[in-house]
Amino acid sequence: MLVERIAGGDAEALGDLYDRYGRVAFGMLYRMLPGPEAAEEVAQDAFHAVWRRASSYRPERGAVRTWLLAICRNAAIDWRRTRGKRSEREVSIDTAADLIADGRVDERVVDALREERVRKAVSELPAEQRDVLSLAFWGGYSQTEIAARTNTPLGTVKSRVRLGMTKLRERFVDER
């Protein structure tokens, strides 16, 4: 309904979408990008992309939050490739160390029960799989770049990505 309203040209519905998911989207972009200014810029780009693409959203292909966050992720990737300076990109490898943070999560983003489930699922992944997922998602590194930086054969990186993501998916699918 919300996305339909956006597709119909209702800017307030875009505000409603922001109310629901803006905080998690901003927090994700904040960690993916070098600073709050970049996160703010990309968040605006992402919501503009939502506005333009709302009519092509298909609920059978995934939930609204997933669709929005994927748009945010793509906008962040585009920012890194087109506007981010190399030096800014280099910073992110340090902050990409962990797939999930140690500190408590804002309960306005994820409730405590859900957070515990996620922490458990992630902690059950082998460390080498967690690392490649984290470097790729938060650090913005491609599989090829991860292989080069960690002196690991590309095939090994690819299989860690596949295995890690498959286990993550199984954990969450099983939880439903």
């Binding site: 998690v24 995934g62 993501m165």
Partner: peptide, 11 residues
Amino acid sequence: EALYEAAAVGA
């Protein structure tokens, strides 16, 4: 969906 569950906690 699985990835963004984790990302929400990692954000």
